[in-house]
Simulated assay, not measured.
Amino acid sequence: MTKIADVLFYLLKTIAAMLLIAMIVMVFGNVVLRYGFNSGITVSEELSSWCLTWMTYTAGLVALREHGHLGFDGVLKKMPAGMQRLLLCVAQVIMIGFMGMFLYGSWQQTVINLENMAPASGLSQGLLYGIGIVFSVGAIFVLLADLIKIATGQLIHTLSSEADEAMAEIEELHETEHLKH
Rank of each mutant, 00 (worst) to 15 (best):
T14Q: 11
L123E: 04
A118E: 00
A59F: 02
H69G: 13
V27M: 13
S49R: 14
L123I: 08
Y104W: 12
A151I: 01
G153F: 00
M117G: 12
I15Y: 06
P119G: 11
V7L: 07
A120P: 02
A17I: 11
T158Q: 14
T14R: 09
W107V: 07
Q92D: 07
S121V: 06
I24W: 05
H157I: 10
K77H: 15
M26P: 01
G82T: 11
G153M: 05
L173G: 05
L64D: 02
A59G: 08
T42G: 14
M18I: 14
I170S: 10
G126H: 03
Q125P: 04
I15W: 01
I156W: 11
H69D: 10
L87I: 11
F72Q: 14
I15S: 05
A118L: 12
G126W: 01
T152N: 09
L87V: 09
L88Q: 06
I150D: 03
L123P: 03
L19A: 04
D73T: 12
M95F: 06
V31E: 08
G60Y: 05
K3L: 12
K3R: 14
F98Y: 01
G122F: 06
I131A: 11
S160E: 13
L159Y: 07
T152M: 09
G82W: 00
Q154Y: 04
T2L: 15
F135H: 07
M79Q: 14
C89D: 09
F9V: 07
W107Q: 00
I131D: 06
K3Q: 14
G40R: 04
I41K: 09
V27G: 05
D6K: 08
F98M: 10
A168W: 04
M55H: 02
Q125N: 14
H157Q: 15
L114K: 00
V7G: 01
G126V: 05
G74N: 13
H181I: 10
A120Y: 01
I170W: 08
I112Y: 10
I4R: 04
M101H: 08
G29F: 03
V62R: 02
L12D: 06
S161T: 05
V27Q: 07
S160I: 09
G82R: 11
N113R: 06
I133R: 02
V111I: 11
D146Q: 10
T42A: 13
V134H: 00
T2G: 15
A91I: 00
M26C: 08
G105D: 06
V75P: 02
H181P: 03
G153V: 10
H69E: 03
G29N: 03
M167Y: 10
A118N: 00
L64Y: 05
T58Y: 05
A168T: 03
V134D: 10
L144D: 10
E45Q: 12
D146L: 00
L11G: 10
L147C: 04
T110D: 00
Q84C: 10
T176P: 02
A59C: 11
T110N: 09
A145K: 09
N113F: 03
L179M: 13
T2N: 15
E115T: 09
S160C: 12
F135E: 03
E46F: 04
L114P: 01
L61N: 04
T2D: 15
G40A: 13
